[in-house]
């Protein structure tokens, strides 16, 4: 039964994919747009094959992954503890939240000039941009999630004499777990989008830089290959979050 389902899904997805490629092929065949502005699937495939056989491709992926993971991990280890503290203890944290919100609405890309001035060129500006992109939405989400924990849970914790450490590890983290992972998933999406742009200006390698380089070298077919890679990688990474979400226990709030 499950096998049939699997193949069914596979069929539908391939069919959809096939339709997209066919439409693309038709458009480029009919030369609706000039070749250099709208590369044909054929050219893309050739470029892709060449790319996959180059070291540069993999090293670009590694660089981008390195930066986004570094920045993301920094954000996780700072925003979550800080957010929990603020959510629990600061009654008048509204003004703090406003400050965070203010920064959240500044496009991370607007920080690029500063990132380059302060951190020069390389890994650091990209990591900085990632942190700016993911820290603020995350901390706001953590604060809200902590505030949403029902009072009764805290009462139970007090009754059973939970230590501070227990409060954090056994009450708060499990209680906000689902919201946290969902929020992280969103922040990751933002970071992934942002790093491509950040690398275009601030780095000398990485996926974003490679796209920009290809575009400046007037090789849009290479650029498209990288774009496809970015999309695929994004999905694969997103699946990590989805997987972790399925592994959460119980529904957060029983009705």
């Amino acid at each position: 039964m499950k096998v049939i389902l699997f193949f069914k899904l596979l069929f539908y997805r391939s069919a959809l994919f096939g339709i997209l490629i066919s439409v693309w092929w038709i458009i480029s065949y009919m030369k609706v747009f000039p070749e250099y502005a709208f590369p044909s699937p054929n050219n893309i495939w050739l470029s892709f094959v060449k790319l996959v056989n180059s070291f540069r491709f993999y090293s670009d992926i590694m660089y981008s992954l390195y930066r986004i993971l570094f920045g993301f991990l920094v954000t996780i280890f700072t925003a979550i503890p800080l957010g929990v503290l603020i959510g629990l203890y600061l009654r008048s944290s509204k003004s703090l939240i406003t400050v965070f919100n203010f920064f959240r609405f500044i496009s991370p890309l607007a920080w690029i000039p500063f990132a380059i001035l302060w951190f020069q060129i390389g890994d650091k500006p990209a990591i900085f941009i990632i942190i700016m992109a993911s820290f603020f939405p995350l901390i706001i989400s953590v604060i809200a999630a902590v505030r949403n924990i029902p009072e009764s849970f805290f009462r139970v914790a007090k009754e059973y004499q939970f230590s501070k450490r227990d409060m954090f590890m056994k009450l708060i983290l499990p209680a906000i777990n689902r919201e946290l992972i969902t929020s992280l998933r969103i922040c990751f999406g933002i970071s992934w989008v942002v790093i491509i742009a950040a690398e275009m200006v601030g780095s000398q390698d990485g996926l974003g830089y490679a796209i920009w380089d290809a575009r400046n070298g007037l090789k849009l077919d290479v650029a498209v290959c990288y774009i496809i890679t970015i999309g695929v990688l994004g999905i694969l990474l997103d699946n990590i979050f989805q997987y972790c979400l399925t592994k959460t226990r119980g529904n957060v709030y029983a009705k």
Partner: peptide, 20 residues
Amino acid sequence: MFRLTVILLVLFITVVSVKS
């Protein structure tokens, strides 16, 4: 959440080692 952090850390360490 722990699972997620562990996965991300492992990924990160892999990338760092490959890079260096």
